[in-house]
Design a protein around this nucleic acid. Structure first.
Length: 329
DNA sequence: AAGGACCGCAACCGCGATCAG
DNA sequence: TCTGATCGCGGTTGCGGTCCT
């Protein structure tokens, strides 16, 4: 393994990229792909380190990047996703097509964070600063936390699947196996869509507009059929139905308490393991047992949920309003 | 008009995770 | 299994432009 010596480092250019450098990088990647970033600069005739080239490509030169002003839809999405995911910019970026994590991070740090602060909302916790705690807030925090758990699990699962599929491809190449067609991608629970569903006036799922995630593929077709019926079918993803129906957990679900105290069910349709944070369930009186399964009634968070909805509507209205039209600015 | 403060954005840095020999 | 290389992510910095005094 060869390390760069000090002399090589001194010759590497830093700072803003010139048009000529951009053209060299673009031309090389269009013809050869980026391959190894470390090897790319020499091959492309650039006096840059591979890391700098990668950054320039991913944050600026990539053809599928949308530049310019963020729409109010995008702003709302960023705020909601930040409430769910925190500073996980790459995860947030997967829900905003054609926007880079760096761009979203800059936009948050330079604008949205300041706006929330001026509105008296803590940009870290997304709660009003004047009135911390309280039942509505704590329940809201529990729901947000739970949804963040889902999103984390989903992202991890996606990463795992990508890794496994890569591994499988390699094995197939090695052994020259003719593989059966890959199974369809597992349904993913798009937390943004669920969140938007939770804010719908009737408590049911609504369209998320143009904010389809490139990586989250669940499944409006599935969800839209649920909404028309209004009552979720037994054996599906009760945790999400719970949120879709304003906390009305109509169906019993088999839940197996495991060591982490998260109850687990199974989505038979999508072959998904479903976990449920027990803190979102109501008291033991809402639960009943039979000989083989443990079933839980729906936690009724209706009133608090209204508070949450109003909070978010107010917040988002303020955020999307032009500064001059809003008394808070 | 000048210069200091502020803002927005591109780019860099450091670290952890993963890969590969 | 170990270790260095590579990659990706989040935090931070630096610079150019704009605003304010």
């Amino acid at each position: 393994m060869v390390r760069s010596n000090g002399h090589e480092k001194m010759e590497l250019k830093k700072g803003p990229w010139t048009r000529e450098e951009d053209q060299k990088l673009l031309a090389y990647i269009e013809e050869h792909g980026h391959g190894s970033w470390r090897a790319l600069p020499a091959k492309a005739g650039l006096q840059r380190c591979g890391k700098s080239c990668r950054l320039r490509w991913t944050n600026y030169l990539r053809p599928d990047i949308k530049r310019g002003k963020f729409s109010s839809q995008e702003e709302k999405a960023i705020i909601r996703l930040h409430a769910l995911l925190g500073n996980r910019w790459s995860a947030i970026a997967t829900h905003l097509p054609k926007r880079t994590d760096n761009e979203i991070k800059n936009y948050w740090n330079t604008r949205l964070k300041k706006r929330l602060t001026r509105m008296g909302i803590d940009p870290v916790t997304h709660k009003p600063k004047e009135n911390p705690g309280g039942s509505a807030q704590s329940r809201h925090a529990a729901v947000v936390s739970h949804m963040a758990q889902w999103e984390t699990a989903r992202l991890e699962a996606e990463t795992r699947l990508v890794r496994e599929s890569k591994l499988l491809s390699k094995l197939q190449l090695l052994h020259k196996i003719t593989a059966p067609p890959p199974p369809p991608p597992p349904p993913c629970l798009d937390v943004l869509k669920v969140w938007q569903a939770s804010a719908a006036p009737n408590g049911f799922f609504v369209s998320a507009g143009c904010l389809d995630s490139p990586t989250s593929t669940l499944n409006f077709s599935v969800n839209s059929s649920m909404t028309t019926g209004g009552v979720a079918d037994a054996g599906k993803v009760e945790g999400y139905y719970c949120m879709q129906e304003r906390g009305r957990f109509d169906n019993s679900v088999q839940m197996v308490p495991d060591n982490s105290c998260v109850f687990v069910g199974h989505d038979h349709i999508h072959n998904l393991q479903v976990s449920m944070d027990p803190t979102l369930l109501t008291s033991a009186s809402d639960c009943y047992n039979n000989s083989t399964t443990t079933s839980y009634a729906a936690p009724d968070i209706g009133g608090d949920f209204e508070d949450n909805k109003n909070y978010w509507n107010d917040l988002l209205n303020l955020v999307s309003s032009p500064p001059l039209e809003s008394p808070v600015f």
